[in-house]
Design a binder for these strands. Structure first.
Lengths: 175, 175
DNA sequence: AGAATCTGATTGCATTTTGCCACTGGTCTG
DNA sequence: CAGACCAGTGGCAAAATGCAATCAGATTCT
């Protein structure tokens, strides 16, 4: 563990923790895909993370205080990973990243509908989602609104629609 | 150049471009520090980027459409780098990154005052800053408000204050 | 009970990226 | 014309990444 920082700039310190190709992918899957176990994160990921990288990132993110690891009561060898408040506070960052990527990069429609909703929902929606994540991961009181359900429903609708009306060209599956 | 993407997810595509330890540092220095030349970026950086890394990042960011390179009319061997609209649109992302880092990581006071102002200023301030960057980097009309000047002034005030009143240890610098 | 399966990882190895530092060819300045 | 300045390159060791095989314990299937 190296405690030396390149500088005390908030942007730099954030990059020192999240500035690689996988850390935010792991958090994204835990946050939006509700993946809580090693295998779920390993196999049900769009991008196909390698097991040693996943292992390393879970360890590193735990050290940095973004996630916690607990034994799953139902399965003795299962580990249950949870987001901490620190990670839950990344919701607005994800919203901005999604908004930017959606506007400037060749995103697929199915995978960007969540970003679109989150952008249009604004800070109120972000806060509602953070409250929901605090319920799921930190055991706090269940909020009335379920943003995750809204996002999932919209995603499924897009999937159903694009599957029913196959586009001639622009919609290549390309996972 | 590889055109294969791991997935069409906006978060993933954003990470494929900006998900490393240096790309956002370079853009940050161009954006907030108004560094436009190779040497400025190389030597006047808090974090100390290596010249080959800087060279590579400038090349990559140019390919990806985030910056442009032009000859500086005043010096024949100088290259002038400018942000594109795509990079200017990262302002809200920087604001969120700064806000998150400032809240959860051991930032220094001088280097986080800008993040604090940007967070408190909200979307209106971000838009004003983007307009200013469009003036500086894209030659658009000069806006009335100069957010960069506001940030710089606040930074200098903090530097002057902390230099004038040397802290003993953990004593609050008289808020 | 025994075999197959599932769990969170680990190990080995090749490739790629990073970091450090010296250095280059051209340009500008005093 | 000497020395500083300019945008980068090149060499090399260390670290990170990617891939595939593997591990030991826990659970499930038969």
């Amino acid at each position: 563990m190296k405690d030396e920082h390149r500088s005390g700039c908030p942007i730099n310190l954030t990059l020192e923790i999240l500035g690689d190709r996988w850390s935010l992918i792991v958090i994204r899957d835990m946050m939006f895909g509700n993946r809580r176990h090693f295998r779920e994160l390993l196999t049900r990921s769009e991008e196909g993370i390698a097991s040693n990288i996943l292992s390393d990132r879970l360890k590193r993110l735990t050290e940095k205080g973004l996630i916690t690891r607990a034994d799953d009561p139902s399965h003795k060898q299962k580990a249950l990973y949870s987001l901490t408040e620190m990670a839950i506070c990344l919701v607005p960052l994800f919203a901005q990243m999604g908004a930017w990527g959606r506007r400037h990069l060749p995103v697929s429609e199915e995978l960007s509908i969540r970003a679109e909703l989150l952008e249009n929902g604004g800070p109120a929606m972000w806060e509602a989602m953070m409250a929901e994540l605090r319920f799921i991961h930190l055991g706090m009181e269940r909020p009335a609104r379920s943003v995750l359900a809204e996002l999932q429903r919209a995603y499924e609708q897009v999937v159903a629609r694009t599957a029913a009306a196959p586009q001639p060209e622009a919609a290549s599956p390309q996972a």
